[in-house]
Lab assay of single mutants.
Amino acid sequence: GPGLTDLFKTEKAAVKKMAKAIMADPSKADDVYQKWADKGYTLTQLSDFLKSKTRGKYDRVYNGYMTYR
């Protein structure tokens, strides 16, 4: 089956995709945050998933999740 690194890459891609969806349409934020909360994502995990070469690119999404939880 898929190894943990593959799983991480898949999760990371999914999280980034959802983060971009929030940035494009902030009204989606609560739905996405709820999904992440259901998956039990911690802020540390989210921070790892949303690492970007562009500093602060996903800060709004991260901060939103922090206040959501």
Rank of each mutant, 00 (worst) to 15 (best):
G1M: 09
G1Y: 11
G1V: 14
G1H: 13
G1F: 11
G1S: 10
G1R: 08
G1E: 09
P2A: 12
P2R: 04
P2K: 06
P2Y: 05
G3S: 14
G3R: 05
G3F: 10
L4K: 12
L4N: 12
L4E: 12
L4Y: 10
L4S: 13
L4C: 15
L4I: 14
T5W: 06
T5I: 13
T5H: 11
T5K: 12
D6R: 04
D6G: 07
D6C: 15
D6I: 10
L7N: 14
F8Q: 09
F8L: 10
F8M: 10
T10C: 14
E11G: 04
E11F: 03
E11S: 04
E11C: 06
E11M: 06
E11R: 06
K12H: 05
K12T: 07
K12N: 04
A13F: 07
A13K: 15
A13H: 15
A14Q: 13
A14K: 10
V15Q: 00
V15F: 03
V15T: 03
K16N: 04
K16T: 06
K16Y: 04
K16F: 04
K16C: 06
K17D: 07
M18V: 02
M18L: 08
M18H: 05
A19I: 03
A19Y: 02
K20I: 11
K20Y: 06
K20D: 14
K20W: 09
K20H: 11
K20E: 12
M23H: 04
M23S: 03
M23D: 03
A24C: 13
A24I: 14
A24M: 10
D25N: 07
D25T: 03
D25R: 03
P26N: 08
P26M: 07
P26C: 07
P26T: 05
P26S: 08
S27R: 12
S27H: 06
S27F: 05
S27Y: 04
S27C: 11
S27I: 04
S27Q: 09
S27W: 07
K28L: 13
K28D: 03
K28T: 10
A29S: 09
A29C: 05
A29H: 02
A29M: 04
A29I: 03
A29F: 02
D30R: 11
D30P: 11
D30H: 11
D31P: 06
D31F: 13
D31H: 10
D31V: 11
D31C: 14
D31I: 09
D31A: 12
V32S: 03
V32I: 13
V32K: 02
V32M: 05
V32C: 06
Y33E: 00
Y33T: 01
Y33L: 02
Q34K: 15
Q34S: 10
K35Q: 15
K35P: 00
K35H: 11
K35D: 11
W36V: 01
W36P: 00
A37Q: 08
A37L: 15
A37P: 00
D38F: 09
D38H: 09
K39T: 06
K39Q: 09
G40Q: 04
G40T: 02
G40Y: 02
Y41P: 00
Y41K: 01
Y41S: 02
T42G: 05
T42W: 02
L43F: 10
L43I: 06
L43Y: 06
L43P: 07
Q45N: 06
L46P: 01
L46C: 02
L46K: 00
S47D: 06
S47P: 02
S47I: 06
S47A: 13
S47Q: 12
S47V: 08
D48E: 14
D48R: 15
D48V: 15
F49V: 04
F49D: 01
L50D: 01
L50R: 01
L50Y: 01
L50H: 00
K51V: 08
K51I: 10
K51M: 09
K51S: 09
S52V: 08
S52A: 05
S52E: 06
K53V: 06
K53Q: 08
K53W: 05
K53T: 11
K53Y: 07
K53P: 09
T54S: 09
T54Q: 07
T54W: 07
T54C: 12
T54P: 15
R55Q: 15
G56P: 04
G56E: 04
G56I: 04
K57L: 07
K57V: 06
K57M: 07
K57P: 04
D59I: 10
D59V: 07
D59T: 08
D59P: 02
D59G: 05
R60M: 13
R60V: 13
Y62W: 09
Y62G: 02
Y62M: 15
Y62I: 15
Y62L: 15
N63Y: 15
G64T: 02
G64K: 02
Y65E: 01
Y65W: 03
Y65S: 00
Y65I: 00
M66G: 05
T67W: 13
T67V: 14
T67Q: 15
T67E: 14
Y68V: 02
Y68M: 03
R69M: 15
R69A: 08
